[in-house]
Design a protein around this nucleic acid. Structure first.
Lengths: 133, 133
DNA sequence: GTCTCTGCAAAGGGTTTGCAACGCA
DNA sequence: TGCGTTGCAAACCCTTTGCAGAGAC
């Protein structure tokens, strides 16, 4: 994970370690503001701008995804693994990773019917997780 | 479409007709600012706040979806029909509607393996449309 | 006639930026 | 030592809000 940073010429600093650790611990979509607040609480004062810059950097190296559903703050999810999908719990917000499968036939239909050439897709499920059911 | 407004106690005004017409014409994700600019160009000066309020109202009556992928502005898509998916062209931005199918087996697997109870999903394809290929 | 809508401008608030000090590599 | 990073605060800019006049029904 940190190796990916170095590979892109980014440095591994104390702040980045702390932010990434906390970000990974959250396990759901979170905002820069919330992360900043959590770090303040944990006695690791880190500038808000640094949190924003770090999240943006993580996105750049493919270790985070952004999604601002509604107006207001942008939500980031720590997500360092390759292509897959998400099952988002609408009660607790926790996000489970789900392997990608069975979208291919759908894509084939797209090509045939619309002459649309799919190169990427995004699939998210919303519902209730085991704990919240 | 306008009937849905009346049904929810909204009024059909000149501004709303113009905004909806232009919004529907766009055929891709667009922003309040862009819509406002297009209307200004077309000699239909309408306040920016009115554009924002109208988009929000359309979302309320289920005729628009919002999605702010990146930072900055929120993107709205005119989308007055029931559940379906989108095929977004990464070159011209045009969005084609795609009927929903073949996600059910995936959902069943989710229930079985994660004890996650899916109630909703969102699927989007990105690629090149017929015109841009 | 009533109650909603519009336009304007100001307020609000999340995000970015400039710059000097700091600290990985 | 060199160059990326941090922190602070100010700047930005998208979005919302307050209010008086206009308009839908």
């Amino acid at each position: 994970m940190f190796a990916a940073l170095a590979a892109k010429g980014h440095r591994v600093t104390r702040q980045r370690r702390v932010i990434v650790a906390e970000f990974a611990r959250v396990g759901r979509y979170t905002t820069a503001q919330e992360l900043h607040e959590r770090l303040r609480t944990h006695h690791n004062a880190i500038g808000l701008a640094t949190v924003y810059r770090t999240l943006e950097m993580l996105r750049d190296v493919g270790a985070a995804t952004i999604q601002s559903h509604a107006k207001g703050e942008a939500a980031y999810l720590f997500c360092p693994i390759a292509h897959h999908h998400h099952a988002v719990c609408i009660k607790c917000g926790r996000v489970a990773d789900v392997a990608c499968r069975s979208v291919t036939p759908f894509e084939r239909a797209l090509s045939a019917e619309l002459r649309f050439r799919p190169t990427q897709h995004r699939l998210e499920f919303f519902g209730t997780c085991a704990r919240c059911s």
